[in-house]
Design a protein around this nucleic acid. Sequence first.
DNA 1: CATGAATGAGTCTTCATTCAT
DNA 2: GATGAATGAAGACTCATTCAT
Lengths: 211, 211, 211, 211
Amino acid sequence: MNKRDAVETKTRILSTAEKLFSEVGFDGARVDDIAKEAGVNKALIYYYFKSKDEILDTLFSALIDEIKQVLIQKTVAGTPEIQDNIINGDYRPLIDAFMDFMFRKRKIIKIVIGESVKASTKLSMVMKVGTLIIDGEIESIRKAYESKGLHFSVNKQEFLVTEFFTGFMPLISYALYGDEWQKIYHISEKDLREQFYQSFKKTHLAAHLGE
Amino acid sequence: MNKRDAVETKTRILSTAEKLFSEVGFDGARVDDIAKEAGVNKALIYYYFKSKDEILDTLFSALIDEIKQVLIQKTVAGTPEIQDNIINGDYRPLIDAFMDFMFRKRKIIKIVIGESVKASTKLSMVMKVGTLIIDGEIESIRKAYESKGLHFSVNKQEFLVTEFFTGFMPLISYALYGDEWQKIYHISEKDLREQFYQSFKKTHLAAHLGE
Amino acid sequence: MNKRDAVETKTRILSTAEKLFSEVGFDGARVDDIAKEAGVNKALIYYYFKSKDEILDTLFSALIDEIKQVLIQKTVAGTPEIQDNIINGDYRPLIDAFMDFMFRKRKIIKIVIGESVKASTKLSMVMKVGTLIIDGEIESIRKAYESKGLHFSVNKQEFLVTEFFTGFMPLISYALYGDEWQKIYHISEKDLREQFYQSFKKTHLAAHLGE
Amino acid sequence: MNKRDAVETKTRILSTAEKLFSEVGFDGARVDDIAKEAGVNKALIYYYFKSKDEILDTLFSALIDEIKQVLIQKTVAGTPEIQDNIINGDYRPLIDAFMDFMFRKRKIIKIVIGESVKASTKLSMVMKVGTLIIDGEIESIRKAYESKGLHFSVNKQEFLVTEFFTGFMPLISYALYGDEWQKIYHISEKDLREQFYQSFKKTHLAAHLGE
DNA sequence: CATGAATGAGTCTTCATTCAT
DNA sequence: GATGAATGAAGACTCATTCAT
């Protein structure tokens, strides 16, 4: 096997683990099953990863890296258009980008949430990621304002609470329960997302606008 | 041992299980530890419950029962005062009652969320409970309106999406991460709750008022 | 409960145990199940019997007692008619009595055989019972002969081997597998028994006659 | 470890299980003890076998395979000499081969009988094996006759009953209780076998000859 | 006699992890 | 890189038996 194959093998292990962790939880997933479903020998998993925990850590790190990437791309390093939209209160493109990302990553998000509710966890990944995103958001908005010569100030603590509980968590919830909602109410992802966006707009975003 | 003791023993097992499940997750909790911490013989747990799963089911059922109880008490069967408040858009007492309940029940709520994100779960408890609560809410509001000879109508699907994702889930999030937030930001429960309420008011509740 | 009921309760426990032991083996049977099926409290079983083993011992003792009873009644203490038959080589009534008994007792016989094949068992019940019966048989034949002023002599060891392996064990086998044979070959107990008797007659009994 | 070792390990587990099952019964045997006595890690047993039951099944299958092998070798595919013997009514070599086999396999035969008397067992192994052997026997005799231009006919049902209860079961009994008999009556295997053969000859085989 | 509650000592089975090749 | 074999440490669940009333 050449390097490309090796990388591919490791990736296959990771995505299989992601799938299984999201389906049955981290504790519920068996390394045996990951091996079987990934089509590799179990010992090989331990060749690539020191432990089952390290697989999870790798997935988490990758998630955080991607989030940073998306944040930078979609906000801070966003096009002048995006920045205009933000100032004009048209968050639609931003939210859409975010929802795309979240929906695509819903498997690992489920894992993160599943792990975060265990009290044993040190600093919950959710708060870690939430704070990360919100900080990025603040920065992005500030930058947008500044690029127009405007000033943006905010009560950090108040802002955080609002963003985390009424902005970030609803979006996360969409990633967690969107699938199920579609099934129960026989609604397409597109339609549900539109409904969600309307709700989000008239609640969370309305507050943004109002400020 | 008389009947009272037996009931007490079973209750002790249940609350110990609730505690451990919430701390390390359902899979992470050991029946041995539940027994040890509850001060009972392990076999006794299996005398009262067919399996570890049945302990969880019992906790879930009890939660749902309590929620129904609270709902009825605080809304549909509420005092005229409560009903007046609803019509006047003063949801504070209602929300407070709810947050009290949720904060008190945060241990089991964490378990529910932890289990709900596993795809294997049939109909996620969260959606079950969420729908239950929202239906109760609708009924309560309708009843409040009708008692004043007013009419209350709502687009059910739209209402559900809004209530679930931007109303129910933020409240759940408060139960999930309130503790951690307090620790990280060195803020008391009372203060955090006030902040949360203000955020909730200017986002979710504002939409209610606006309708 | 008066004494009659108490006896009845104990009997019910015994017959339920006999049934379960024969169905799933001694090890496979649960005291819990005996209690449930007998409709008594589990602790009550321990009031009547010191242990699960003692239930088995009681069943075994009762079996041996009954065998002795039957033997005496049907052979040694048999009517002159029976004794005539024996001398004339007409074992039919004797064999019939025996098969009746065995078929009726097939449940406990299954238990005895099941236990006897465990090497750990001290002296196998089977050999104990087998020897008991064969000794009785010898005595009965001798007595029949003597009552007619005839003499009956036998090479004990040779007789024992023949009686045990080609006489006693086929009869036991009938008790063990008669039920199943009926089911598989769709044959009534009456017909199977007739076939068995013919086979037994032309093999084992023929040798008796020939002597 | 190479493949040869692996096979050897699995075999060791099987023969240890066979030994223990025959000593204390299937239910009485502990997987822990099998592991300890086979000198392997307990988990390794579950690497090779899905469950304790599967160990038993494997032993049973192997027994049936061996029986088929012996049958073919000793009868249908037997030498002309063997076939001559059968026609001449000299079953000694055949019976000897059979008794050798049975005595060698007495451990697993005890297990089979022990399990077969449990009503829960589907189609009792004993009847399965018994029928298998008897069918093979019929075939072998028929073939011997035909090779000499002779005709062999038989009433199947009658033949089966005779062979099973007065031929097969006494032989089985010898495997079950031969050991014990030797101990009780202080007789060598060789002598007991001779006695058994004489008894078998003048009962079961005499009927064969007479036909 | 009778019972619900309680227990100690297993018993099978699982699982993350490692070893030898 | 890759694999079949092997292992230590638990884990859920069971069961005969006893206790208190």
